[in-house]
Write a protein that binds this DNA or RNA. Structure first.
Lengths: 252, 252
DNA sequence: GTGTGCCCTGACGTTACGAGAGGGTCAACT
DNA sequence: AGTTGACCCTCTCGTAACGTCAGGGCACAC
């Protein structure tokens, strides 16, 4: 019936203090306690611990790990796929470093000295990632942006595909309602708006109705976002904005 | 003439604060300062910083990095070779993790659940390393042992070969002196003893003359060490001990 | 001569634990 | 029944490697 802290610690190769810590911060609280207050870890707890250690070894902070693990709708397979992808990336990174070292060794034996830039090439280039940069300019350093950055850091290619698909669905539904002549403040349009808000919450950051409304305004004001909708149907950007506004009002 | 903190920070992809910190703890102090007190980093400083970042990314503590970098008689090539080896090891480790994830994925799709041991197999096995374990029993947790453990952690196979060769030379010289009938307290024997002490200091830990004397006593008292010398020549263990003693007295 | 940007030195905050202190719990041995 | 030893608990303090201001110089442009 469950494992004690000591047993789990030995099993997982961590200290008891670490488990206490994870309990303290709510990252991993044992499923049960004995009447004497002893921690009892269950099988699912071990599962979670294994994932924690995995992401930890890849350099994620405990806070990041918490958001990753508590991500809604992520089954075991999601994590395994993500882990696989992260490992592949990390290995790629190390192989770059190997190449850099080999280059340096050659330079050394040839008596050439590298320029400062060459020396640090292999560092610093932690993917500025188009998407992240765009976002930074836009919401620069806000709380939502921070949250988004942290969560998306762990997304794999497959995650992004799913996200794109989900987002595409929302746009299609907006377009369908728009072309069917459904008013933007109709419950049908507002429901799509709400789904959009949930989509953001699920994948990027918690989006309050007010924030969502502001986002809608930006969809119209910023040509880069507007184009996204306008290319589907002329006038769709304004329609979406109005739907988001109506939905925000409904939900407040 | 030199780089400012800001320039170096941008170049290496670290913050200014990090450079200040490295200066504070003496890990990387800029070669010069302007009359106004501004830090000026020279080319060798950049070199050192690059190495620091390298070992840091591989998970070494700054203290460990300091000892690695200030290791006597380690040229650029030594570091490059070491880095190459460390990277290869780390990649191997990650590949093990990939294999573990793939195994888990298979188990998942087959509906099998792994045992707790299986789940944590990939962790915990951070090489108990025969050598280190022996040492731990012997000097359990002493300062010297800690120092030794930290330094040897970064040694590559090639380092170990060099160490063995050096150690072998010392033993051969002891044996030669012993068989030539040179007294253990002769300056010739004491010089070999001193070389042995330096060898320890270079590769493992700072060994005071007193510690060295204690070590000599152990060479005789402990059959496992004694055998090391006795198999070369009968009576050599005692001879070595006496030489270490004589040398310790000479040097204090 | 007065911004504007970069630099300085403290000093305090944070994360992820390590290392005890002081004290219960529990199965075993006597 | 008592005691011993191996666990467990909570609480507090310490540490490493910085992040994050605060308060104040320096240097060059306009």
């Amino acid at each position: 019936m469950g494992y004690s802290v000591g047993q789990v610690a030995a099993l997982a190769g961590v200290t008891v203090r670490t488990l206490h810590h994870y309990d303290e911060i709510g990252l991993l609280s044992p499923g049960e306690r004995t009447r004497a207050g002893y921690r009892r870890y269950t099988e699912p707890d071990l599962d979670r611990l294994q994932r924690i250690l995995f992401y930890r070894e890849l350099g994620f902070s405990l806070e990041e790990i918490a958001t990753i693990l508590d991500e809604p709708g992520a089954g075991p397979m999601t994590h395994l796929r993500r882990q696989h992808e992260l490992l592949r990336r990390r290995i790629g990174r190390l192989q770059e470093m190997v190449a850099a070292v080999e280059k340096a060794m050659e330079a050394q034996t040839m008596g050439i000295s590298l320029t400062p830039q060459e020396r640090f090439e292999v560092f610093g280039d932690f993917d500025p990632d188009e998407h992240a940069q765009e976002a930074e300019e836009r919401w620069g350093g806000t709380d939502a942006f921070e949250q988004s950055r942290r969560r998306t850091a762990a997304y794999t290619k497959e995650d992004w595909l799913r996200i794109k698909e989900e987002a595409g669905e929302v746009v299609r539904d907006f377009a369908a309602a728009f072309e069917a002549g459904v008013p933007a403040d109709d419950v049908q349009a507002m429901d799509v708006a709400e789904r959009h808000r949930e989509h953001l919450g699920r994948w990027f950051y918690d989006c309050s109705p007010e924030m969502h409304k502001g986002l809608g305004d930006m969809f119209v004001a910023d040509p880069r976002f507007a184009a996204n909708y306008e290319q589907v149907a002329e006038g769709l950007a304004v329609y979406v904005r109005d739907a988001l506004r109506a939905n925000a009002e409904r939900r407040s």
